[in-house]
Design a binder for these strands. Structure first.
Lengths: 230, 230
DNA sequence: GTCTATAGTGAGATAGAC
DNA sequence: GTCTATCTCACTATAGAC
């Protein structure tokens, strides 16, 4: 399977540069994130979503053929932001321990500024059939290439896996179980930012407050550093 | 607030010892656990639940006045099993580090043998309004005292908190943020056993297999030991 | 305690005008 | 692209016989 990039500047096709698409779609997805994050897939109806966006139900179905495809498109957007947060910090090739810490910092900061993201990720991971092996816009009309959730997720996970393997091979990390370690990191980082009221009750402050986020960053980094160090 | 135990043997009240109650209720709750664990609250209907149990919808409503109370009763059952797993290992008063490791072992083993429990806990923690401040059977007819979810959960969390505080006071744990540490432990333990397909894809084996469980126990214990040690 | 029958609401999805 | 109107179905919950 070849994942081609949008191929934006084909010479000879003017394309009338739609730099600013009229964005009903994006608005729908943005509102959908907020609702699905709190209610889950089954807990939010197209009716409710339409009302919140300020459109009719039928308009939603004009943009997305089914509720599931809407949900999948929304999840893809969230995952792409998480992937972007990782891309933003991992350009240079520092030592594994440094890169890992920067990744964790990056993801913690990103999730702290992107409230629905943690919850939506958590829901997607806990729900079986992670919504779904979606194919979307295979026609030439649109450039959007929506990756299946699993593929995009696997891309993120594999980068972690490679980092851990590298660190272990170099002897700077102890020979931990890589799968278990990744699950632990996700548990420590993603679950935290999806724990809402419970987390707030535990730490006595909003989990999204500046102080709580900075403390979380330090605590998680230290835990993981100690946990991995050879 | 006084949390009194059921006060089982009041002398003078024969009570006609109903040691074996006729258990439609328990059967409903058991089936409900399996369904809600996978579909979540909104994803499972009373119709579907009734059909799976082998009763009519109306019979469900005979035992539980609303869907929410059924769900709350089911969650309470799950939490009580988790609390029981902690009780089973924490009778003696060993050093904090030892007790913590035994607790983690106990919870990991319990969650590994109780498939719906992890998922249901995770859902309850991620969903806001953790379902709900339920009052149930305030009448004298029944001994069942259903605690609000938050109260029972707080009971479990407070034991962890006390343990960490004790260890820190004794100087065997470093002065970590207690709330953050509890969230990390929950993330590492509970999330793992609710990660289903994703976890399986990551570790290349069912997360409930004997080998995977024993490895998880070791890995998590070691991570936490290193993370906390002064 | 279980059932059938049904009420009443809201769900996802479609038809077709503008 | 957006709308109103409508279809069909599943949902929670209730009524009342047995």
């Amino acid at each position: 399977m070849v994942l081609t990039m949008p191929s934006q500047t084909k010479p000879g096709e003017p394309k009338s540069v739609a730099v600013r698409p009229p964005d009903s779609r994006e608005k729908i997805l943005e509102v959908a994130e907020g609702l699905f994050a709190y209610g889950g897939y089954a807990g939010v109806g197209m009716r409710q979503l339409a009302a919140t966006v300020g459109l009719s139900k039928s308009s939603l179905f004009h943009h997305f053929p089914t509720k599931r495809e809407l949900y999948a498109a929304m999840l893809d957007r969230v995952l792409s932001r998480i992937a972007a947060a990782l891309d933003a910090v991992s350009d240079h090739d520092a030592a594994p321990a440094v890169r890992l810490e920067e990744w964790i910092d990056g993801v913690v900061r990103m999730l702290s500024e992107d409230m629905p993201a943690g919850r939506l990720m958590m829901r997607a991971l806990v729900d079986e059939e992670p919504f779904p092996a979606v194919r979307l816009t295979a026609d030439a009309q649109s450039d959007r290439e929506l990756m299946p959730f699993e593929v995009r997720l696997a891309g993120i996970v594999d980068r972690f896996r490679a980092l851990l393997e590298e660190g272990i091979a170099e002897g700077v990390f102890r020979p931990v179980s890589i799968g278990d370690s990744i699950l632990s990191v996700i548990g420590a980082v993603v679950f935290h930012f999806s724990s809402g009221d419970f987390g707030e009750a535990l730490i006595g402050d909003s989990i999204f407050s500046h102080a709580a986020v900075e403390r979380r960053r330090r605590e998680v980094s230290e835990f993981i550093r100690r946990g991995l160090q050879a």
